[in-house]
């Protein structure tokens, strides 16, 4: 039987069912907050940075299965990466890591990229302030 949900492949469904890295980091080095509840998607991404390396990432997401799966995947992808490497993670890379998303859901992966960039910018902003002090 085909139903609309078969649009999601097994990998997306696996991340939707068992999302990795759900939650908040208590003392994060950077937080990215993107989306709007009015649009039906809100993503919060937390990172912990040690010596320029992202050692931990967590998320909280309000949204559809694609939003949850991309949040889960992007947090998996950034862990262990340097800030420079993490900034290069595109939404396309997240979609590829999930073996693809339905066309109507690709915007969810854009949100994942934006959340990551926002978290890194937040981290860099704090670093700059620290240096000024």
């Amino acid at each position: 039987m085909s139903d609309p949900w078969s649009l999601y492949n097994d990998k997306v469904m696996e991340h939707f069912k068992n999302p990795r890295n759900v939650g908040e980091i208590e003392d994060p080095d950077g937080v990215g907050h993107v989306g709007n509840p009015v649009c039906g998607d809100v993503m919060e991404l937390y990172i912990k940075v040690n010596d320029g390396i992202i050692v931990d990432a967590k998320f909280k997401t309000f949204g559809c299965a694609a939003a949850i799966a991309t949040s889960s995947m992007v947090t998996e992808m950034v862990k262990g990466k340097s800030i420079e490497e993490a900034l290069k993670i595109s939404n396309k890379a997240v979609v590829e890591a999930l073996d693809g998303l339905p066309p109507a859901k690709v915007h969810c992966s854009v949100m994942a990229e934006e959340a990551l960039k926002a978290a890194i910018e937040d981290y860099l902003e704090h670093q700059k302030l620290k240096r000024q002090i």
Partner: peptide, 28 residues
Amino acid sequence: VEGESLLLNLDLEGICASTGSACSSASL
């Protein structure tokens, strides 16, 4: 919480329902 996620989780339990959420519609 968002409707499509609710619906999809219910579907995994074999319960078939519907939502008015944008995420489940083509129009968003």
